[in-house]
Simulated assay, not measured.
Amino acid sequence: MTTHYEIIVGTMLGASEYVAEAIAKMLEQQGNTFTIHLEPTLNDINKDSTWILCTSTHGAGELPDNIQPFAKSLKDADLKGVNFYVIGLGDTSYDTFCHGAKEIETTMKNTGATLLAAPIHIDVLEHPIPEDEAVARFESTLETA
């Protein structure tokens, strides 16, 4: 069965974008379809699709600039029926490790959306090429879902 995924990317330096592209390639190889949103707006994202929120953390634990307007628009949204996954990139040398991903996960849950699996948090110190780890862990998540 083909599933369509909406891949919503929060990135400052490009690592989350690379992860999103690698996840998309893996999904495509499995026969699924996807749309990648680098400048996400709530109205452009199909609520009948499964969402993958893929974001890094920037500064003192903030979401990247490109995804902040989207995150703000979620605060008043009703997303009951939307299913989603979270992939976060961070650096464990900071006490705000993956805080951006945790923040968007909480916001999504507050809208009524359903988190389908435990979030994937990747330490870029341990995995300097985070897309390889993200694909391996997300593929495993889909297999057990």
Rank of each mutant, 00 (worst) to 15 (best):
A71Y: 13
V86D: 00
A101P: 08
N83C: 02
Q68A: 10
C54Y: 02
T50F: 01
E21M: 11
P119I: 02
Y85D: 03
Q30Y: 11
C98H: 01
C98S: 04
A117C: 07
D76W: 05
N66R: 08
T141S: 14
K102Q: 15
F70E: 11
A71L: 10
E139W: 03
N46S: 14
E103H: 15
S73N: 14
L38W: 05
A22Q: 10
G10T: 09
I23G: 09
L125M: 06
S49V: 00
V82K: 03
A22S: 14
E6H: 02
Q68T: 11
N110D: 14
L63C: 04
G100L: 04
I45E: 14
C54D: 04
L53W: 02
I45R: 02
W51L: 02
A71N: 13
I23K: 09
T144H: 06
M26W: 00
E62D: 15
H58M: 02
A117Q: 14
G90T: 05
E28R: 03
V82C: 06
G100H: 04
A118Q: 12
E133A: 09
G31Y: 12
A22C: 07
S140Y: 00
L142A: 07
E17H: 05
D78G: 10
E126P: 00
N43Q: 13
F34L: 06
L142H: 05
N32K: 03
T50W: 01
E131K: 04
E139S: 15
M1N: 11
T107E: 14
T11E: 12
V135C: 01
L53M: 06
D48S: 02
A117M: 06
P119Y: 02
I87H: 05
M108A: 03
N46L: 12
A22I: 10
S56F: 00
S49N: 08
L38F: 13
A22V: 10
C54M: 03
E126N: 09
E62V: 06
A71C: 13
K102M: 14
H58D: 07
R137H: 00
S73P: 12
G88H: 10
N43H: 13
T57H: 08
A24W: 08
V86L: 01
T50L: 03
K47P: 12
A101F: 09
A60K: 09
Q29D: 11
A77G: 10
I120V: 12
S73V: 09
M1V: 07
V86N: 00
T111D: 07
A136N: 15
S49K: 02
S49P: 00
G88D: 10
A136D: 14
A134Q: 00
N110S: 13
E103C: 11
A22E: 14
E139H: 12
H4F: 05
I45T: 11
E103S: 15
L125V: 05
T96W: 07
Q29L: 10
G100E: 06
D78E: 09
A101D: 07
E6A: 14
T57C: 04
M12H: 15
S16I: 00
A15R: 14
V124Q: 06
A117P: 06
